[in-house]
Design a protein around this nucleic acid. Sequence first.
DNA 1: GAGGGCTTGTAGCGAGTGCTACATATCGCT
DNA 2: AGCGATATGTAGCACTCGCTACAAGCCCTC
Lengths: 175, 175
Amino acid sequence: MSRETLLPQLAAYALQHGFSDASLRPMAKAAGTSDRMLLYHFGSKQQLMDELLSHLADIYAAALDGAFPQGRTTSLRACIDQVMAATRSEPFKPFLRLWWQSVAGGVSGEPDWAQSSGRIMGTMLAWLEEHLPEGLDDPSGTAHHMLAVIEGASMLDAVGRGEIADLAIEKAFPE
Amino acid sequence: MSRETLLPQLAAYALQHGFSDASLRPMAKAAGTSDRMLLYHFGSKQQLMDELLSHLADIYAAALDGAFPQGRTTSLRACIDQVMAATRSEPFKPFLRLWWQSVAGGVSGEPDWAQSSGRIMGTMLAWLEEHLPEGLDDPSGTAHHMLAVIEGASMLDAVGRGEIADLAIEKAFPE
DNA sequence: GAGGGCTTGTAGCGAGTGCTACATATCGCT
DNA sequence: AGCGATATGTAGCACTCGCTACAAGCCCTC
């Protein structure tokens, strides 16, 4: 059992239980080892969380790439609809819990969390720009706009105001 | 010392330290009492947090009302610029930490937190619609769109990607 | 087979958590 | 004055937290 073997199991546990229940003993149990060994392999909980966060960011990026539509979309509305459908789908819920916990952690003085979240936003921005319909005046600006709307809508979903999110998308990118 | 006397001091403590450090003994010390008495007055920590959250939501709504521009704005761009300037100002940072912690808490299975956050979004939406410039085709839809952009931008700020937020606003509501 | 590093188990420490039992103080009311 | 309700202090419980001291097992090399 090494870091590399442990990380996927720790990631699975985090996705299922969130970061708030991520203390050493439960994580160790889920990974089939002991708190003693987690500290032996990672040095400290802080380092374990750093590596876990980075590992989860990789998984998340891969999941986005797999779940989002392939190739360029045919309209702005089609693009955002497909992205929203993906992020609202059941398999994404565990990621979203971790996502908002990361955002909260970042703004609460954990610079690594903010940096990790910020990197993911960069990835999404690049992805959007590549998958926007062709022939736009300002693809970069449009991708920025769409990212803000997507994330605002996703937050509104998270707090139970999905209707606001739907209307916002409708207005931002009409048919 | 009653609930009403305690709540403002507890709110001040939460704004300064965030929810993650909100355990009974530190909060009691900050409020000049003991954990024993907090439980005596509120019954349980759960009930204390419920009342504190509701109290903080009131304070937040009042702070928004005070910080945001009065009366109708002259253009969409002026409106969103003033709102962003207010939420990005130093006195708002403590609120934003609690805000993102509430969002994360809501999506992590604390229904009260989601409900409280959702209510604040309703307040902001109504506020926006009232302060938009006059004579718009679709003031409600515009307010929805603007709310999503504001919140997406605010999250991007939170994870250290303010430049993405700025460009998104520029594109969404050009001069 | 003996030594020596890598890995693992057991047990515990000190601090913090929400919460409670018990005793006391304080105050208004009759 | 005495009683009962409200308020408060002291001490502790059972638990979890990250982390560590100590010892034992393991496997490779000489």
